[in-house]
Write a protein that binds this DNA or RNA. Structure first.
Lengths: 125, 125
DNA sequence: TGTCTACTTAGCGAAGTTGTTAATTAACTA
DNA sequence: TAGTTAATTAACAACTTCGCTAAGTAGACA
């Protein structure tokens, strides 16, 4: 789980953290302000924030005893880039996909995946 | 972690699983075919696949002793919808964001987040 | 029937996550 | 100096995840 994308997805896999990001999207906020809407302890919030920081989604600065947090979208852009491949499937742009399938499908049974010489029955659609 | 989006993000937070999705984006594949590129045991693959199935990202069918798997993009569409809010930050369409910030920022210190009556020093930028 | 292939389930251990409370650090304030 | 506020760290319990090996199920085929 050391790669950037995995870290980002893992950070996003929590409703509390996504809620915090949504709040930061509306503007900077301190740790207490981010904690307010949630019914969990400050240490728990602090740790959620650390997860977001480690994922590069949040940057903390200092202002006296406060720690204003700011949203950093670079990792989300990487998620968006990753999504591009799959977006073709649900945005109706099937042109490139269809072409892709036509190119890849015939290679299926010669790929490393098929370990037995036995042929699988092809179902006609 | 019971909500759909969290389950989807958690499923995506693993390079092996994302690799399997990428393979399925090129066309249907059996469990063995999905296992082939990875240096892990079949049971491990089977479980990764179950995670993807539980997230609704993969649908398994039956063909004799084979289990052809197919990509299901509905959960990815939901991720894409969730991304929409943040996409404004890195796609150069700052118009709505700027407007948003102008509306939200003045409310900051009257929000539930500030528990003390004490005013925080505002830094001029 | 017996064996092969494809795949899943069970059981284990190591490691990580998420919450808690209690204690600690750091900065402001009276 | 002493007290308050903001936030973090430490220590712990409950639970999940991810890998493994071994064993089990189910279909094809000789």
């Amino acid at each position: 789980m050391s790669d950037t994308l995995s870290t980002t997805f893992a950070a996003l896999a929590d409703p509390t953290r996504r809620s915090m990001l949504a709040q930061l999207a509306r503007g900077e906020a301190t740790v207490s302000e981010l904690a307010a809407p949630h019914a969990i302890s400050m240490p728990a919030i602090s740790r959620h924030l650390k997860v977001l920081e480690n994922a590069g989604l949040v940057v903390k600065s200092r202002d006296a005893q406060w720690r204003p947090c700011r949203l950093e979208v670079a990792p989300l852009r990487r998620v968006d880039d990753w999504m591009a491949v799959y977006r073709e499937f649900f945005e109706g742009r099937f042109d490139r996909l269809t072409e892709h399938l036509k190119t890849m499908q015939p290679d299926r049974d010669t790929s490393a995946g098929r370990r037995t010489p036995r042929q699988r029955k092809e179902k006609r659609s």
